[in-house]
Design a protein around this nucleic acid. Structure first.
Lengths: 144, 144
DNA sequence: TATTGTTATACTCTATAACTATA
DNA sequence: TATAGTTATAGAGTATAACAATA
């Protein structure tokens, strides 16, 4: 039963996270920034200042998409754009104190052990994902 | 460490699923239907024919959004719209054989134990979600 | 009058293609 | 020429508001 059909898990997980994302985006009207903005700002908070191109790669979006996100965060005073010291083509995006504290409000300090050590998925991790799909579904279904 | 800060887990999970969704939507260019369409079609496959209003509720979208999804699935020949037998206001959306087999191709038969028995989250389930965030992140980061 | 579904309209997120400036 | 970032444009997904048909 464990490592039987990984393909169906992928499909179930896809559907589950799509619904959860829908849910999360909808329920953030009380927050000052969108999930897209928070995700980018969190990466800057965690990994430090970087260029738009690198941030786009980290967030798995194309550069023009990140240009927009950065512009919106800049308008909100959450990041600053400064020239690159040696390369005139590049710029450096840095979170402002307001941006950092906003991430700290939304995220917590528990960040360390979540960002590294990857590896090939084993049976145990697959089982964890299976359970997680159920849990995600239960969360979505319960929050009527 | 277990039930310490559920809030930070929620934030981490949000960011993780947003990135995974981005990833999944982008990588489905080989599939004939989008994740949004697959999710609705899967629900019809699992729960049977239903009205657009009920399907919208199941999928956690508003009725006008579901109208669009159903129209697109209908154009592809994956669902059919038939009049409600007694209530002239309602219609019944039914997956066609092509729609059912498409879901079967994408999903597998392992569906039973994933749809029911919900409950309040316990320490173990929270830990599962924490691990799942790492696994999701590792998947996203590895599929360079 | 209340309900179901649809149409009209708009906003967010994301992409590709084309452009500008610098290396 | 190649690279970094931006602008222009388009499409998918979703929402709210207004409408039509039926109960």
């Amino acid at each position: 039963m464990i490592s039987a059909d990984v393909q169906s898990l992928a499909s179930d997980l896809s559907v589950a996270v799509v619904r959860l994302t829908r849910h999360l985006r909808g329920r953030r009207s009380d927050s000052p920034i969108s999930l897209t903005q928070l995700s980018a700002l969190s990466t800057l908070r965690r990994e430090g200042s970087m260029t738009p191109g690198l941030l786009a790669a980290r967030e798995r979006v194309q550069p023009p998409s990140m240009t927009r996100v950065i512009a919106s965060l800049s308008e909100l005073g959450l990041v600053e754009r400064t020239p690159h010291p040696t390369d005139g083509r590049q710029i450096i995006v840095t979170p402002t104190p307001a941006g950092r504290s906003l991430v700290d409000d939304e995220n917590s300090a528990r960040e360390a052990w979540m960002t590294d050590q990857l590896g090939i998925l084993g049976d145990h991790q697959i089982q964890v994902l299976r359970d997680a799909v159920d849990i995600i579904n239960s969360i979505v279904n319960e929050t009527e």
